[in-house]
Design a binder for these strands. Structure first.
Length: 430
RNA sequence: GGAGGAAUGGCCGAGUGGUUGAAGGCGGCGGUCUUGAAAACCGCAAGGCCCGCAAGGGUCUCGGGGGUUCGAAUCCCUCUUCCUCCGCCA
């Protein structure tokens, strides 16, 4: 969330910056709630001051051997009045939290203004699209023909939008997981984390999925557990509520999890293949840094994701999202879109964002510049990005490396993991 | 799942109803001494919120929430987490 005082003091400016991102009514609700709350707090604090004075008088009188019954009577009245007003102060506090949690992050100055993806800016392109002497198949045909993915049997287990990976398909998924984690830990300096695949409400609130996007999540009935929609949730919340020292930063974390998304409201979109699933696997990158280095960190984190695409020889483009297309919590986002020859389009495979202090405020991650207790604790900046979505990498590989005979070549870097050079037309690794 | 115990500031640890926002120690910061460092000694140090241009004032905070009381770190209820024992279990 945004800082309450900062929002109050820069209200008109922030209103302009959030133009395409929030209903103006929500900002008016903030201003109104804020002034109501402050008036109520001021009142109740004056009453508390009166109560404390009277209590001190009672203590003094008792020490002098008097009973001070009249003072006690006054104090009792003040106590009752405080009690009465407490409820409305609490309600205003909650209203304040509620309205603040519905206000998205302010876009960075370098973010293009716009209402949707049409204002996005392509900032880079890498790799040559493969040329085929035949018409390249989409992965759903290719994968099913090879027998390495099975949608019909997956439907028996869990329904639509699930996949069962079989044989070389399963091994390819596992190889990608290992390759990505190895690369990020060995070459890019990330620490590997294997977190729980469920998280509680507080964590999802902290990273911004709740309260607004509960419909996108799976919740475990009768519990406060949610299936994680991304490893961003556990990795960022790892340090929730902690005050770190400057020496601890930057913190670089990578982790593999399955990601579970209800995909409510996406009926009819990307229904074929493994583009949009209720469960997909992903290796995530998280950086926790000081405010002054967060934009440099965004560039580096994005390059870490790009390195995976380049190592795998997958052509892609890099897109700077417009203010209208960015996620709720982000201040700046790059999307990496991989080329899919079977589908004949670029498709998002990684989304790398700087959240500035937005998530740090919600999760309570602070740090101290100078050691010890001297020096105020400040909020850190958090960033994350996919490094990469494994399911989409899987399909990008089979579509880009497909051969005329129906087989698939394997990128060099994966061959040691799979101990094979290609997937033969029958689906076996050879 | 059952039975007990615990939770205090950066860390350890006192504190069972009235200047205790909190002794003491460690750690931190500043200083004296020293060529420098160490040691020793002296001193300084919590955060949130509200009012205020400011100086400053007020209020809340001893795991979270609620209650008793004129007054709660201290008494009661509840939740969470951790520890010990029992049961179950990959």
């Amino acid at each position: 969330m945004l800082d309450r005082a900062y929002l109050r003091q820069n209200f008109e400016e922030i209103k302009v910056r959030l133009a395409n991102r929030v209903d103006p009514g929500v900002l008016e609700e903030f201003a109104e709630t804020d002034s109501k709350r402050r008036a109520a707090v001021t009142e109740i604090q004056a009453l508390q001051e009166r109560r404390n004075e009277l209590s001190a008088l009672v203590a003094k009188a008792r020490r002098g051997g008097e009973d001070a019954l009249d003072i006690v009577r006054d104090a009792r009245n003040v106590h009752a009045e405080i009690h009465e007003r407490e409820a409305s102060v609490n309600a205003l506090d909650e209203a304040m939290d509620s309205v603040l949690s519905r206000i998205p992050n302010t876009p960075h100055a370098t973010v293009p203004h716009g209402t949707d993806d049409s204002a996005n800016l392509e900032v880079g392109r890498w790799g040559d699209r493969p040329e085929f002497s035949f018409r390249p198949k989409p992965h759903w045909d290719l994968g099913v023909d090879l027998g390495i993915v099975d949608f019909e049997r997956a439907a028996k287990l869990a329904g639509s939008r699930f996949a069962v990976y079989v044989g070389a398909g399963a091994k390819l998924e596992r190889a990608l997981m290992n390759f990505m984690l190895d690369r990020h830990t060995r070459e890019h300096g990330y620490a590997e984390i294997l977190p729980p695949f469920v998280a509680n409400s507080k964590c999802l609130y902290g990273t911004g999925q709740l309260p607004k996007f509960a419909d996108d999540l799976f919740k475990l009935e009768g519990t406060d557990y949610w299936l994680v929609p991304t490893a961003e949730v556990p990795l960022t919340n790892l340090y929730a509520g902690e005050t770190l020292s400057a020496d601890d930063l930057p913190i670089l974390l990578t982790g593999f999890t399955p990601c579970f998304r209800s995909e409510a409201g996406s009926y009819g979109r990307d229904v074929r293949g493994v583009i949009r699933q209720h469960q997909f696997q992903k290796v995530e990158l998280v950086r926790i840094v000081t405010p002054e280095e967060s934009y440099d960190a965004l560039e580096r984190l994005t390059l870490d994701a790009e390195d995976i695409l380049q190592s795998l020889g997958l052509p892609y483009r890099k897109v700077l999202l417009s203010s209208g297309d960015m996620g709720f919590s982000a201040a700046k986002t790059y999307d990496l879109e991989v080329w899919l020859p079977g589908l004949d389009e670029f498709k998002e495979i990684s989304s790398c964002s700087n959240f500035e202090a937005f998530q740090a405020r919600r999760t309570g991650i602070r740090y101290r510049r100078s050691p010890g207790r001297k020096g105020k604790a400040e909020f850190v900046h958090t960033l994350n990005g996919s490094g990469l979505a494994i399911g989409r990498t899987w399909l990008a590989i089979i579509e880009n490396y497909q051969q005329a005979d129906g087989g698939v070549l394997l990128p060099d870097v994966l061959q040691p993991y799979l101990r094979a050079e290609r997937i033969a037309p029958g689906g076996s690794l050879v």
